[in-house]
Design a protein around this nucleic acid. Sequence first.
DNA 1: CCGATATATAGTAGTATTGCTATATTATGG
DNA 2: CCATAATATAGCAATACTACTATATATCGG
Lengths: 99, 99
Amino acid sequence: MDKELATHAAEVLKAVAHPLRLMIVETLQDGERSVGEIMDALGEKQAITSQQLNLLKDKGVLASRREGAKVFYHIQNLNVIRVLDCVYDHCTPKKRTRQ
Amino acid sequence: MDKELATHAAEVLKAVAHPLRLMIVETLQDGERSVGEIMDALGEKQAITSQQLNLLKDKGVLASRREGAKVFYHIQNLNVIRVLDCVYDHCTPKKRTRQ
DNA sequence: CCGATATATAGTAGTATTGCTATATTATGG
DNA sequence: CCATAATATAGCAATACTACTATATATCGG
């Protein structure tokens, strides 16, 4: 792994390495959700949720789609789901999500 | 995933989400290495290498063993290797390290 | 156009991270 | 004990991140 590759990989990991952002990605594993739905699911304030969503979008982890007044976010970089799997296995070794 | 779990998971991810630290973990995939060996492998300065090694050790990612004047580090949290795999697949989809 | 709802952004204080230099610690050989 | 090699730590400036409040933008129903 050269430095450039490592830098890019680190940026993606850093995007996910945050409690709220981790939970956002988890919530979106089942499919897209509106900002309001995500807010409610995580019990977070509107501004903070929106900020983190935008950050994840900036880093290419998520993508969004507007439908009327609502904006729906979904996972764009599918590899983060695999990272989540690692996290799950690490924290709760019994509950593996893949074989 | 509750907040506490997410916080812990985020901390582990954060520990690895850094170019140099990512390369350190990669270097140690084959087994333990002394600080000097790691330094040389990555072409980094002594102080910085030592700092990042200590950080990784603090977060439980690595562990160390002293042998005379040298200190050998190795991977303690094996899940980070799986995270590395995700990173590999993400950056170079052709070169999968697992099936 | 107006009010209401949904989402985004600006500005900001507190805190954490990073990379650096200089210095300290630990162990070895003589 | 001394000089040297190997590693760790202190201290610091620059930068980045976080959480927050306030405000702005966008869309819809009427």
